[in-house]
């Protein structure tokens, strides 16, 4: 049969909408927790570049109409205390925080908090009948954990990664203790070249855009950030 046109219509141009409501945006979600080091060693240029990178990350996600509905970001920072500075939100409600560096490196506690929050978030998805992709945890640090039971947190992260509850990525900035960092993930930790946070977040956003175009549960081959002009080098 012939297609039938539907009356008349005018489009207003306006970008924002309620993507954080499960009912209004039932698209499957790609949850992503960024665990960011804000200990005093990050002070100065590193923290500034990190902040700029986050802004760039938001912009990239917002620009993609599908990723803006599917990718949900949460940010956990760790210095002397661990804070969830951004709770799970689509790019619409993601206002990159201005992070300031100070204090020690309570990495284990931060990893625990991130995994707890992911589990809670998954339950919310289940209650709302929302499908989800394998969550991402992205740990970025320039040091080594100072807290007492980081080994337990590291083991929990590795087990979760192995059980495919989430994918764990560890990125070390110059000066990080890569040997310790390697205990937090199955994959080799990556070493950030210089302070290329911007490129890191561009890569993260484009990887998540391709993931959000695949199907929940699919394996998506990610572009290797260590080859060519990538932002990372292998840490070993």
């Amino acid at each position: 049969m012939e297609q039938r046109p539907f009356g008349e219509g005018i489009v207003d141009d306006q970008p924002a909408f309620g993507t954080n409501s499960f009912a209004e945006n039932p698209e499957p979600r790609v949850p992503c927790v960024l665990i960011l080091d804000v200990s005093s060693s990050m002070a100065g240029d590193p923290i500034k570049q990190l902040n700029d990178g986050l802004i760039c990350y938001k912009d990239e996600l917002t620009a993609d109409s599908l990723a803006s509905k599917r990718v949900e970001v949460s940010v956990v920072t760790f210095g002397s205390e661990v804070n969830t500075v951004v709770d799970y939100t689509t790019s619409e409600g993601f206002f990159p925080p201005k992070l300031e560096a100070n204090g020690l490196t309570y990495m284990g506690q931060a990893v625990n908090q991130a995994i707890d929050s992911l589990e809670a978030r998954k339950q919310e998805y289940k209650n709302a009948g929302i499908s989800y992709y394998r969550p991402w945890i992205f740990l970025i640090t320039d040091g080594a954990p100072n807290d007492s039971n980081w080994e337990q947190a590291a083991q929990r992260a590795v087990e979760g990664d192995k059980a495919k509850s989430f994918s764990m990525y560890c990125v070390g900035v110059e000066g990080a203790d890569f040997e310790t960092l390697a205990k937090f993930c199955v994959l080799e930790p990556l070493k950030l070249q210089g302070l290329r946070f911007r490129d890191l977040f561009l890569w993260l956003s484009s990887s998540q855009q391709s993931v959000s175009r695949s199907t929940p549960g699919d394996e998506v081959p990610l572009e290797n950030p260590t080859v060519g002009d990538g932002w990372a080098t292998a840490s070993v």
Binding site: F6, G9, G18, P26, E27
Partner: peptide
């Protein structure tokens, strides 16, 4: 997507959605 529709097709009611479905089928 209801969230997007409010912006891209603010006048589209359920009749519009049903008609689009019909046209897909056609």
């Amino acid at each position: 997507s209801p969230a997007h529709r409010k912006v891209t097709f603010p006048k589209a009611d359920w009749r519009f959605l049903v008609r689009t479905a019909l046209n897909c089928a056609a």
